[in-house]
Design a protein around this nucleic acid. Structure first.
Length: 504
RNA sequence: GCCUCGGUAGCUCAAUGGUAGAGCAGUUGACUCUUAAUCAAUUGGUUCUAGGUUCAAGUCCUAGCCGGGGCACCA
């Protein structure tokens, strides 16, 4: 970027002015002893205590007169001439600074004039409450810490240009407080997921992202090349096959949180790289994992969002959707399809089903000529059922053709022991009773590979032949989970740096 | 890949085909408690790019670039 304008030029001149006075505006370090937002809250608590009627009891918070050292970015400047007010902001929030250039001395006053909005400074001073009741710091000294050479986005309207928000997320984080909240909460979600599984005795592992054969899902992979080994690798599309090797190896409860890469279209719900959680529990089955998913998501909602009723708001701030995580429905695939497609859906002929799907249900664009009967029903489920599953629903008893790698249900051999946990109209988490029969697994993988032998992960099949315990497994798309929990409608709003086309 | 909407000052937005403008920010000045500070003055533009139509294009046409939404792809 070589764009220059007068705003940048002015800042460069202020930088030159600081240098000319022997001031280094890019310090190596500074040691604050408190955080802006925390100090503001604690001082306000003390003020509340101080004005309460007798008996007051023990003082709380931070008292007026307390000395603090703070560091942050200048986000507002209110110039009263002999009295100046700044807002200083760090990750915890903001606090007002009161600066009297005259009190600082002539030299410091000159340096103060060379500060710009968005500069980082460190200050030392004492706490006090203004006449207007604003918790503030009376600044005794300040140090420039990091100069900003470009103007920040507007403080009032924030930053709304989606392209800049995504390409220069740091500006989005500076200008839009709610955006920062979302990403701080995403961090908490990840932390709580880890502690949830650790408490249940799971082991967290990291498995290869570069794989010779990308297995565990059916998606287009990215390809790369390793120079020293002289061979191609694929970026992983799923975590599954390595985690199952670890079940073979005796790690009975194992999970991984990591990035998957899929070379497919982008949308509000798809980013080429996305974060997946997979967890496997030996001697468990899909029912075990349903309990795990429900407990995990309840825990995340309560610990991070503070409620089981998740509100999604539109641009005007009105609630347009509330997801109630206190009730989890369990429903059979066929029953859900019947609700939308008619009670006799599975009694009529395949030809009649196809006719109804195309003509009555208006799915002509979603049903290709070569679709088999189960795919026609699958289209009904995908287009008409799944988007309506806003409230948490475990869909069970899926037809076996739909999920070829899962274990057949003992109670109904036309179905498999699989669930799809749908919330917010999306599949959030599939769960399986995992296949541990190496012969059945080989047949299924060979069928899936469609005769292309090089797509068969022989190493994985050998691992299964050494014996894998029965196990339940789940995968949870973390980005979509965050969308649901944090009330975001686009995956780009829960991924810090979503994939965009490079600017030419 | 297809359909559709959009791109104007640092930010948020205006501008019947007829001199590109406002608010905020910035700059200068005033003010010893302001907080979207206030008041006065003021700077700032390759209207995404390249062509075209026209006496005249931010505006109309063509192509392209980037972004949003939708579709397709996607266990």
């Amino acid at each position: 970027m070589e764009d220059t304008n007068s705003l940048i030029e002015q800042r460069r001149q202020n930088l030159a002015g600081l240098n000319a006075r022997g001031v280094n505006p890019f310090m190596n370090a500074f040691s604050p002893d408190a955080q802006c937002g925390t100090v503001r809250t604690e001082l306000a608590r003390w003020a509340e205590w101080n004005k309460s009627v007798e008996p007051k009891g023990e003082p709380v918070g931070l008292a007026e007169g307390t000395r603090v050292r703070l560091a942050g970015r200048i986000t507002a400047h209110r110039d009263m001439g002999k009295s100046q007010f700044l807002d200083l902001r760090d990750v915890s929030g903001r606090i007002q600074l009161w600066i009297q250039p005259k009190v600082l001395g002539e030299e410091a006053a000159e340096i103060f004039k060379l500060l710009d909005l968005a500069d980082f400074i460190g200050i030392e001073g004492t706490l006090f409450i203004t006449r207007m009741g604003e918790p503030s710091v009376k600044v005794e000294s300040f140090t420039p810490l990091g100069k900003s050479l470009r103007p920040p986005p507007g403080k009032w309207h924030g930053l709304e240009d989606t392209e800049i928000r995504y390409r220069q997320r740091y500006l989005d984080l500076i200008a839009n407080e709610p955006v920062k909240e979302v990403f701080l909460k995403r961090s908490q979600i990840l932390k709580e997921i880890r502690s949830f599984f650790h408490l249940r005795g799971y082991v967290e592992v990291e498995t290869p992202m570069m794989q010779a054969i990308p297995g565990g899902a059916a998606a287009q992979p990215f390809k790369t090349f390793h120079n020293a080994l002289g061979c191609e690798f694929y970026m992983r599309i799923a975590l599954e096959l390595y985690l199952k090797r670890l079940l073979v190896g005796g790690v009975d409860k194992v999970f991984e949180i990591g990035r998957n890469f899929r070379n497919e279209g982008l949308s509000r719900r798809h980013n080429p790289e996305f974060t997946m959680l997979e967890a496997y529990e030996a001697y468990g089955d899909y029912a075990t994992m349903m309990e795990t998913v429900e407990s995990l998501i309840r825990h995340l909602a309560l610990s991070v969002v503070g409620t089981l009723k998740i509100e999604h708001r539109n641009a005007d701030g009105d609630i347009f959707k509330t997801i109630d995580l206190s009730h989890w429905r369990r429903a059979r695939y066929k029953d859900l399809v019947r609700e939308k497609a008619g009670d006799d859906w599975f009694q009529v002929s395949p030809e009649e089903r196809r006719r109804r799907a195309v003509e009555d249900l208006k799915l002509s664009g979603d049903i290709a000529a070569g679709y088999e009967d189960f795919e026609v029903t699958a289209a009904v489920f995908e287009k008409l059922v799944e988007p309506t599953l806003i409230q948490p629903t475990f869909v069970t008893h899926l037809p076996k053709q739909l999920v070829p790698l899962a274990k057949i249900s003992a109670e109904d051999p036309t179905t498999v022991e699989v669930f799809e946990c749908c919330i917010n109209g999306q599949e959030i988490a599939p769960g399986y009773t995992e296949q541990n029969d190496p012969i059945a697994q080989r047949e299924a993988l060979e069928h899936q590979a469609g005769g292309e032998q090089q797509k068969l992960d022989e190493d994985f099949l050998v691992a299964l032949e050494h014996g894998m315990p029965p196990a339940g497994g789940i995968g949870i798309g973390i980005d979509r989970l965050c969308m649901m929990l944090l009330g975001q409608e686009s995956i780009r709003d829960v991924i810090l740096f979503p994939q965009l086309k490079p600017k030419a």
